[in-house]
Design a protein around this nucleic acid. Sequence first.
DNA 1: ATATCGATTATCT
DNA 2: GATAATCGATATG
Length: 224
Amino acid sequence: MTLTVPMDETRPKLKPLARRFYLRTPELVARELLGNILVRGRGRHRLAGRIVETEAYLGLNDAAAHAAAGPTARNAVLFGPAGHAYVYFIYGMHYCFNVSCRPAGNAGCVLIRALEPISGIAAMARSRGVELGIAPTVAKLRRLASGPGRLAAALGITRARDNGKDVTASDLWIGDDGFKTAIVSTPRIGITRAVDPQLRFLLADNPYVSGKPFRAKPSPASRR
DNA sequence: ATATCGATTATCT
DNA sequence: GATAATCGATATG
């Protein structure tokens, strides 16, 4: 199992990814966002987690994308400049957080699907309405932000509050601390069209990705 | 362990 | 009026 390295305060100051990072294809941005840190807040009271799962949505030529049929009131941000938050409401109760890619006019984006919680964990638990006792297990921590709806709830992301925000310069931003690791791709989750292409990207063997709960590999010594 | 189901509403046809 | 880039709960083997 490859748990990611915790962000620690001795690393160089976390700096927002620059605009040019997002001025590329959704596939590339989705891959390269993995391992970076999604942050809510600036300064002292920060909520932060490492991005461990993403999906690329390609825009007009992607039947599964919200932008597939062209601009509407809901998806307007996708047709604007790169590096802005696209937040939508789904199933009557969940928000999902995306970042726009490519130059204005190209409606690509990346859905951020899961975080490994790093700081502000107690606040995330409060936002999610879950109890973590002391010394929470990975299984408990996983419940905070493994899945796009959970992630948005953990960071208090809503459409009213966050849609359209500049992710390179606002209280909702993404920073690079230099972390890199192996990446896996799979088909995207929960869609009914364009189901084949492998546009979902995950950190290999990371327990904080969405889907089946993580199970520790049985070791000979721990078998019962 | 996997399967199915209900919640609840903005958005689009 | 139908659908949806989900989640959590319940049922069943």
